[in-house]
Simulated scan of single mutants.
Amino acid sequence: MAKLNFGGLVQGALGNAVEVNAEELSNEYSKYLFEGEVIQNGFKLIRDVIIFTDIRIIFVDKQGASGKKTSIKSIYLSHIIDVEMETAGSGLDDSEITVTYLENVNRIGHNEIFGAQKFEFGKKMDITPLYRILGTLALKNRNEINGK
């Protein structure tokens, strides 16, 4: 998989999230990485963390009062097949990007099992660059799946 440069694009889009450097993320979360996987960027939202690697997007959800219970969820970049964007209006609503991805392993047409993950952003954030990166990736994945 080609290395994606989420860098400052995601940083600007995540509103209340705080960027965490890759070394710090590696120190704390390397036990969850696959062999050869490299952390590119990550963000912390209070106790939860979103990590972008060269293979997947990892969601670390620390649960319970102590935060010792941890849930790890991954979206493989190669399985992202659609991206939707909704910009904020003039009211209280925020901007959103929804990523649709294949949950089945083989990425085979006609037997798809879909999942979706919504990212919410502050209304002042320009989410268009992140939408374009994920949309380009989705198009590439669709072309590979459909043999184009």
Score class of each variant (00 low, 15 high):
Lys3Arg: 06
Val38Gly: 02
Asp93Leu: 03
Gly8Gln: 06
Phe34Val: 05
Glu96Cys: 00
Glu37Gly: 00
Glu19Ile: 09
His110Trp: 15
Tyr101Pro: 15
Gln11Met: 04
Tyr32Thr: 09
Glu24Trp: 02
Asn143Leu: 06
Lys124Gly: 07
Phe34Asp: 02
Ala13Gln: 09
His79Trp: 10
Phe6Ala: 08
Ile113Ser: 07
Met125Ala: 14
Gly64Met: 09
Lys68Cys: 10
Phe121Lys: 03
Ile145Thr: 13
Ile46Val: 03
Ser74Glu: 14
Val105Trp: 02
Leu45Asn: 03
Asn21Asp: 12
Glu84Trp: 15
Asn104Arg: 07
Ser74Ala: 13
Asn146Tyr: 14
Tyr101Thr: 11
Glu120Arg: 14
Gly8Trp: 04
Thr70Gly: 08
Ile75Glu: 08
Val10Trp: 08
Ile46His: 07
Lys124Glu: 14
Thr136Ala: 14
Glu103Ser: 11
Gly36Asp: 00
Gly91Pro: 11
Ser71Glu: 07
Leu14Gln: 15
Lys140Pro: 01
Asn16Arg: 15
Asn21Glu: 05
Val49Pro: 01
Asn104Asp: 10
Ser95Asp: 14
Gln11Arg: 08
Gly42Tyr: 00
Ile51Asp: 00
Asn106His: 07
Thr87Ala: 08
Ala13Lys: 07
Lys31Glu: 12
Asn21Tyr: 04
Tyr131Cys: 07
Arg142Leu: 10
Leu139His: 12
Ile80Met: 09
Asn41Gln: 15
Leu102Ala: 14
Phe119Trp: 06
Leu102Val: 14
Thr70Phe: 08
Glu112Pro: 04
Phe43Leu: 04
Phe34Arg: 06
Asn141Lys: 11
Lys3Leu: 15
Asn106Tyr: 05
Leu9Met: 06
Asp82Pro: 02
Leu25His: 01
Arg56Leu: 07
Gly7Val: 09
Phe43Ser: 01
Leu102Ile: 12
Phe52Ile: 04
